[in-house]
Design a protein around this nucleic acid. Sequence first.
RNA 1: GGGCCCGUAGCCCAGCCAGGAUAGGGCGCCAGCCUCCUAAGCUGGUGGUCCGGGGUUCAAAUCCCCGCGGGCCCGCCA
Length: 653
Amino acid sequence: MIINELRPREDYIYIRALTSIRNSLDRLLPPASLPREYLIAEPPENIDADFSYPLSRERVALSDQEKIAKEVSESLSRDLGLSATVQVTAGYLNIKLDSNQYTSEFFREFSSMGDSYGTHGNIRLKIVVEHTSANPVHPLHLGHARNSCLGDTLARLLRFYGTNVETRFYVDDVGRQIAVLVYGLSKLLDEGKSIDTLSSGWKIDHWIGKIYALTNLLVEMNALKKELKNASDEKYRELIGKQDELVGEIARLRDEVPEAFEVLSSKIMQDEEPEKEIARISILYERGDRGVASQYRHIIEKVLQGFKETLERMNVKFDKWDWESDLIWNGEVERILSQARRSPIFSSVKGSEGLDFSLIINEKVKIELNIPKEMEIPPLVLKRSDGTTLYPTRDIAYSIFKFKESKADYVINVVGKEQMLPQAQIRLALYALGYPDLAKRLIHYSYEMVNLKGFKMSGRRGRYITVDELIQKAEEMAKIELERRNRNLDEIQSRAISEKIGIGAVRQSLVSISADKPITINLEDIINFEKNTGPYLQYTYARASSLLRKAEEKGESFAGISEDIDPITWRIIRKESAFPYIIYKSAKELKPEILVAYLGELAQMFNKWYDTVPVLSDPEPSSRRMKLQLVASTRAILKNSLYILGIEPLEKI
RNA sequence: GGGCCCGUAGCCCAGCCAGGAUAGGGCGCCAGCCUCCUAAGCUGGUGGUCCGGGGUUCAAAUCCCCGCGGGCCCGCCA
């Protein structure tokens, strides 16, 4: 999963050095099967060098090794005007750069680029990131938190890199789930009250989540009761067990929304065939029935309002909100269906209209569309027998819409791993229906599930931890930690800071783990404030900021570098000069965790340096000025990175 | 039954794509550091059959094969 078009900007010193070394190796060595820059790395700490390359893998004669060392050194001097001593030790080419020359070049480019340090210019590439897209039937929960943080961070990262990014939220308002909610809610609204009145005291999406879950459970109960009537003895026992479970779930919700429960339970349990009614509503909505549509939209807008509040707290914003139903009403979905009917892979699947991919699928197609070799793709049913559409059908239309409407080069769908198969089917459908290029540029950015220890989450049953609860918990913990330090902050300041720290903790932790690892957490784990966390970065930033504030007050200058650069300082400078490369790499590979890991290392180096090296009290002016420049560059890198992570920098903590 | 992913210290994770120097961080635990720029910090110590077994290679946590354990998917749900 990479964005192939992204290239590193060639005028950063770190990237120039890397390129120069790679070029000289390529000149003297036989062609390699992979770009040699991948293997040019920082050596272990006990080796006194800045870059190294494992020459032993190249099987070159000893005499040639010397020649290579000489060429690498000469080319660095020629290409960058940088003196370097290059030696071969233990099969490694070890390159040691002139730290003074390198440092002054680093500071020069840093000061000339200012706030944009680390970007790669404006790339003519449009990327759509669709993420979160939660069903508007319950509040955002832990799984969505991971989705939102990943999606939003990817969008910010690509934007910072220099591509043109548009974020989109798909309002999934068609299908059974939402119809269940409308069915239940309409029973309550029949009494003549408004949603706002009924939900008073609740955050609207939280209340609606309860109503949805309760409706679902009562509908299930209704069906179960009927099944019980004509069940055999053996079956009866099994169903009774299931009933007990349902009763437990319902009782839990009854206690939370007692008034709604009274109305819903009597009405739904009396209903002869709730499923029929749910299907009827759903069909009417797809047809665009005015009454039903206004009812639907009214309810969904309420839930979206709740989503927006939560997302705003997390610093997540969307450029566009797309309604699934619009794609049906404006004929986009019907167009897909008629294209499908004309396609050679159109077939009858279990008596319904569908696509049979077995006719087009082969190894080449699988590779092109990023589908695993061994994966079997079952046929895709496009329509229910009642004539309504299925989600993948609508999503085919939506995929094309995203490409067309945004004039996108890539569309990234941040969607759970469990939807791997339908996502693959959508790519195949695009491929088969005449959009092979779009199919190749539709990326399923998949992430694994988030679970709570000892707790099975279920939206349908109303069992989940909401993002709002998560955030609140994080903020409370941050506040306690903040106030324990005895700062004289008033309540307003204290709350403002702890909100930002709480979000920092949550956002950093959710993107620091690779997306393909399942997360099982307890709330205390996700929120911590020590090393390698969002708050640690915010703290480091605040430290750097206040140092610079003090320096400015004293009228210090930030120019010039000192004669001798000590090893700790040199390490940080090298690290900081790699920042643009890290941005390039994490953007190209769509891996924010690369950036996060880098930031943890940088912050740690800086804190270590900060503790050992006096800055403001350094009596030597040139050394003091260089140190201040280093603090400034650290601060700038942290600032840009925190922006990418959607975490607010704090000037003071 | 088939597929995808994960398995690295008591716990959480990076490294795997692109094989290379004694396998890195963090948490925890133990011992230190605030008359000095923010102690959400810093220093030192503790802790590893890289799930197991084969294979390829000068060299395997990394590549291949066979297993084991866990998660998810295989619906006219999304």
